[in-house]
Design a protein around this nucleic acid. Structure first.
Lengths: 160, 160
DNA sequence: TCAATGTGATTAATATCTTAACATTCTGAG
DNA sequence: CTCAGAATGTTAAGATATTAATCACATTGA
């Protein structure tokens, strides 16, 4: 019989995943109804908020790895939501900007998205939500982990 | 210029995503080193903790949609980690159980996984982590959202 | 008993994730 | 100037996510 006390703590990634599922359930119907994926919506908001930007920056801010981003941006351009162009100075860099249609769609959907958020806020409580977000913010700042092979002496007796 | 105060709050899904990324960075190297995916590891732990169970239960607990689960379980069986069989009484149900090799691997990896968790705990603080997890737990309990079409009057002036 | 309905899993099609390998383009030391 | 190494995207290949449709079996009710 496993040591259930130790097991309990082990669910941080799971909890983050499940919490995100619960939240996304509020947004998904809206995004589906306008034919956007989660990732596309994240990118649209970024571009509307901050203006045109490089692909690499989008990848960082939207938490999308570049191999995924490549395809996503191609499809978004094909759908008429964005424009893609190369930086004149450094042609490695890909500049992404919102198209007129993309901007219009974003501004149509944003208030509906906000309304979804308000529902969550109403259920969960405004203060608690702020507390949660600030904790998440801190968690995001975790230092990069030490390489596994470099330190195998991390095992505690309690872990065994 | 967008109303940045409203925008800020809108990042709950983003924060959950980024926080999860930060955390998974600690576990990924370990899982890669033993050739397991995140999903496979979640399933192994479930089975080791609770014993054999139906596919549907796994889907719920591990946050994996059944179409994905079908393939994952096939691959895990092919890898010799689990056994799949049909319920004698109700042959619609798929019973999944840990194989000897699967159990052994799970118990080899678990302490290493625990060690990763301790690192996170050490950086973030034990109390804060517990607080965070309890908040996440609550968030997971959010009621299912009201259907979009049924109530379009959710829009607040502030959202526009 | 049988048709209607419901449930659990799978298939299909498309999108995204993940790791590794490449291709280009820049940059800087020599 | 130039060539090795770094930075930025892209391809490739396999695994998972997502939605819709379907299959097989169960259950219910007339």
């Amino acid at each position: 019989m496993p040591t259930s006390s130790a097991q309990h703590q082990h669910r941080l990634p799971q909890h983050l995943l499940r919490a995100r599922e619960a939240v996304m359930a509020y947004f998904r119907p809206l995004l589906n109804s306008v034919g956007l994926t989660e990732q596309q919506w994240r990118i649209l908001r970024l571009l509307d908020d901050r203006g045109e930007m490089e692909a690499g920056v989008i990848a960082d801010l939207a938490c999308i790895l570049s191999p995924s981003l490549t395809g996503i941006l191609v499809r978004m351009e094909k759908a008429g939501l964005i424009h893609r162009s190369r930086d004149k100075v450094d042609s490695r860099r890909l500049i992404v900007s919102l198209s007129k249609e993309g901007r219009q769609l974003t501004r149509e959907v944003a208030p509906l998205s906000n309304a979804c958020y308000r529902q969550i806020e109403a259920h969960f409580g405004e203060e608690k939500l702020e507390l949660l977000i600030s904790l998440l913010n801190e968690l995001e700042q975790l230092p990069a982990p030490v390489a596994l092979s470099e330190d195998k002496a991390l095992l505690t007796e309690a872990d065994r």
